[in-house]
Design a protein around this nucleic acid. Structure first.
Lengths: 138, 138
DNA sequence: ACCTAAATGCGAAAGATTCTCATTTCTATA
DNA sequence: TATAGAAATGAGAATCTTTCGCATTTAGGT
């Protein structure tokens, strides 16, 4: 699985962009805020301005390299777009995030959009609950 | 359809809370930001501080009187909880919001939570698209 | 190597929301 | 029904996330 080529998606291959992309690809945490990315880069000695992190993540989103989520509150969460589409189930206690795909839900969504006269662009489905670990800690 | 009783949900019946609840019940717009509520009250001569609007809406959410949504961006959207659960389909052009309920999706969600070992608290499903009106204006 | 457009970094600014705290208002109770 | 005490409000300051402006630097084609 080699790195995506920035030029292929219409972005100049600048140092900050390469650092951010590399970090997203190598991180084992899949879901991160812009601040998370900024801090993680800082800690690994790779300085990139916070404004640049925001700009680059937004550009990556437009280019289809990352997906932006609005899980709960105020801020955006980014995820590398390296697999097929999926939805999320989140633990409200520990913040754990799991992914899933359900063809039944996918096709029902398309049907609903059709019924309502909408052309469907996208969708967001988040299930909130308590994961098995946190249920036990109860 | 008489007003919900604030005391029944453990909230003192203060003037600002009554004004906000009444406004939510009588408005024909169902989905509003805190700022929207604040401004609408101002315009109808009912002054309530913005901080109070935020506080009260949050309390109403905790009490189950309103639902909070994170449709797209940064800010919360509130909706009076006067009907049964439903999900939303939004027009990305004009901001129109329609509601729907789909039993198939509901039960698949519950099944997925079960499969993943989660106890399900809640879920959010937003379909984004272009409504029929906006498709024509194209 | 050089030129130009594009990208970066920094701090300022903006938008949404929360906090602080002095003042006011409920409500239970005397 | 007056009143004390707890809770709520209002106004502005503060916070948090994100964007903007602009001077400086860099990528990449010639």
């Amino acid at each position: 699985m080699e790195s995506k080529d920035l030029k292929q998606v219409g972005l100049k291959a600048t140092i900050p962009r390469l650092k951010i992309l590399k970090f997203l690809e190598e991180s084992d945490v899949r879901h991160m805020s812009a601040e998370d990315v900024y801090k993680a880069l800082l800690e690994s000695g790779e300085e990139v301005g916070l404004a640049t992190v925001y700009r680059v993540l937004t550009q990556f989103e437009s280019a289809g390299l990352v997906a932006r989520h609005h899980f709960e509150g105020d801020h955006s969460i980014f995820e590398l777009n390296d697999s097929e589409h999926h939805d999320h189930i989140l633990c409200v206690k520990c913040g754990r995030v799991d992914e899933f795909v359900d063809e039944v839900i996918e096709s029902r969504q398309a049907a609903i959009a059709r019924e309502k006269g909408y052309s469907m662009d996208d969708h967001a489905l988040y299930i909130f609950g308590v994961c098995s670990d946190c249920q036990q800690k109860k």
